[in-house]
Design a protein around this nucleic acid. Sequence first.
DNA 1: CTGAAAGCGCTTACAG
DNA 2: CTGAAAGCGCTTACAG
Lengths: 342, 342
Amino acid sequence: MNIKTIANIAGVSVATVSKIINNYSDISEETRQRVLKIMDENGYRPSSSAKTLATKKSNLVGVVFAGKLNVDFSHPFFVQVINTFKKQIGLLGYDLLFFSNEKFLDQGEDYLARSKYFQVDGCIIIAGDEVESSVYDLDASPIPCIGIDIELTGQGSCYIMSDNEKISPKVVEHFYMNGYRDIGFIGLQRASLVMQQREDAFKRSLKQFSLDTKPEWMVYSKDYAAEDGYQAAKEMLARGELPRAVFAATDLLAFGAMRAFKEAGLRIPEDIAIAGCDDIEACRYTDPPLTTVKQDTDKIGRLAAMILFDLMNKQMDNQCIKVEPELVVRQSCGVAVPGIEG
Amino acid sequence: MNIKTIANIAGVSVATVSKIINNYSDISEETRQRVLKIMDENGYRPSSSAKTLATKKSNLVGVVFAGKLNVDFSHPFFVQVINTFKKQIGLLGYDLLFFSNEKFLDQGEDYLARSKYFQVDGCIIIAGDEVESSVYDLDASPIPCIGIDIELTGQGSCYIMSDNEKISPKVVEHFYMNGYRDIGFIGLQRASLVMQQREDAFKRSLKQFSLDTKPEWMVYSKDYAAEDGYQAAKEMLARGELPRAVFAATDLLAFGAMRAFKEAGLRIPEDIAIAGCDDIEACRYTDPPLTTVKQDTDKIGRLAAMILFDLMNKQMDNQCIKVEPELVVRQSCGVAVPGIEG
DNA sequence: CTGAAAGCGCTTACAG
DNA sequence: CTGAAAGCGCTTACAG
């Protein structure tokens, strides 16, 4: 069942049918209704491939999970971003194509080749650690790209990320407002760009409030898992003098630290306060629930869709958009000095 | 840059180039190498739409999130299934197309129309609650479909789900083996098919072990959230006589119940043991970590890819495959009677 | 307001 | 081992 069959049944040309499908105005209402009816009766459906071939537009957006580490449907941040992105871009008339990296990575193919192959109208590039260079070929191509957590510099590219500089200050400020003055940190030994930013901003923020910072209060974990946070906290405990509050660079590290502190007989937050970062779902169910900083994934996803749409449909300059993170206060940071509440 | 340009540069016909692209054997090695080199030098990439138009095969698998409720990238079960499915189907040479329901649902379009439009070779249908009827049109069509948690009856369809009948018995058996005899249940007031199966199998399992079941030990929550589990547990507490162990139909309900029991001064598992169902990530970080039943999402995802591949490439009968769930033992169920360990 | 025809970039019998 | 040509199902100037 194709456009020709419909044209034959209706006794019109394929050009006319095509115009009706695409809502052209220069068709008589009578013809339009008649042809529409025939299409409906015959369950006619246009073919995307023929249309794409003829128009060079696919109405498809490619989704690139870049980086070898930590990018996956299992990563809560990316899942949330993609979720709102999908809804918003769907409203704008695009469907999503998820590239399978598995097979073609072996063959030395790249994202650009895949994008060309499918003639996607644009791409969303979501980056974890260790981003492959082929991602930047895509960025440099004329295909519009919107980056999440990755700096894109191509002509038709923009990128969005949380304002990472503001994450640590929000936590430090919260600690400060609640009367905590001795503040520790659990970071990562091999810090990614984002992790490094969190650490640097943490130190800067302490200075702003003229707070002491002792080397004993800074520990670095081997990896991202809760177990690594547990080990890091054990090390902090072993060093003797503890801070009164600890900021862990991720929620998972905070979970591990909480367990270590509890095992050492400390109460949270009465003896030691803890804050994490990311606001993964589990923060709500720990004992006590974890105060943390949430990235505004909803806003990031929606913005990404809007901007990509503009990139695909009109000229736009390369830009970086930063989205404000948000402090989520739960019970893991109590009030250290009564009367000084945040 | 198309096949014709390459053919011209190489001084061969487009047919020859096409055969080289598709690894036909009846091409002289000399020609093959020469043309391959030219393609490479010119950065030539074939076009999916032209190929699909000519062959009626797209190498695309459509992903349908069916149902109005609880199906989304934010649902851990589906995310995990899709994750392994994507990897496996990628290895088999297919990419994934995620249909945007948003726009076309308004227009009364359906999944079948979308599938035809994109000429997907097959679909994976993942179902939550309240599945739309248009899903069954897809099922009934000649397009191969693999269903997850949804009964598909079409010619070219198969479906996979966890063996839900075995979930509750695994928990009851675990309780029993650990010496618990008084076992309660937190279910859902408006139970979906899956939830109803869990409840029925729970009751049956108690009978098998000749265990008492008191109405006071069975409570029903309003909804899926942890807060609902909290309220349900409060109700159980209010009724007076408590069971020694409680099976909550989902992890979230279990989290809420744990909080309610702790607030009432009960220790877990010393005073009351709890088990959940689903094995969401947070189970690892509650205090104590929650014993639960995990669906084998890895197996489900891989099986789905394998079976769909077969459905797309050869005849296969409509079948239902059940995947064994797995008990994940953590610390929320201790040993009630010393010496009787599970 | 409608139609004839070229073209989008591939594949595939078929002939040689 | 190679090529000429028809065909896949659309769109789009262009002519009328």
